[in-house]
Amino acid sequence: MDIVIGFLLVCGLLFFTGGSIGILRFPDFYSRLHPAGKLDTMGLLLSLLAMAVYVMMDFSIASFLTGLKILLIVVIVFVTSPTATHAIVDAGVRAGLKPWTKEGGGGV
C-alpha cells in the first residue's frame, strides 16, 4: 500500500512542477492559463487522493470522516477551479488583451 501512496504523491508533485514551469515558459497570458488552472487541479487530485488513502488506512470513524473531508476538498476544487479560470479569462477579454499567435500578433 505504501508503494501506491508514494506513486500517487510523486505523480501529483510532478504535475505541480509542470504547472509551475508552464507558467514561467508560456508566451502570453491566455496560454499561461492552461498549465495554471488544470495541471494544478490534476496534481491536487492525485496528491490528495494519496493522502486520503493514507489517512483511511487505519480504519476508525474519526479517520474515515477525515478522509471524507479530504475528498470533499477535491470535489470543491473540481467545481471551483474552472470557474476561477473562466473569471480570469473573462477579465482579460473585457480589458482587451490580444492573444499571442504564431504569426506574431499581440501578446505580452
Partner: peptide, 19 residues
C-alpha cells in the same frame, strides 16, 4: 494533462504551440 506536460517540458515548445 499528459499532452500539456509534454508541451511544457519540450525544449522547442515555441514551435509546437499554436494558440
Amino acid at each position: 494533462n499528459i499532452h500539456v506536460m509534454y508541451l511544457v517540458f519540450h525544449p522547442h515548445m515555441m514551435d509546437l504551440i499554436d494558440p
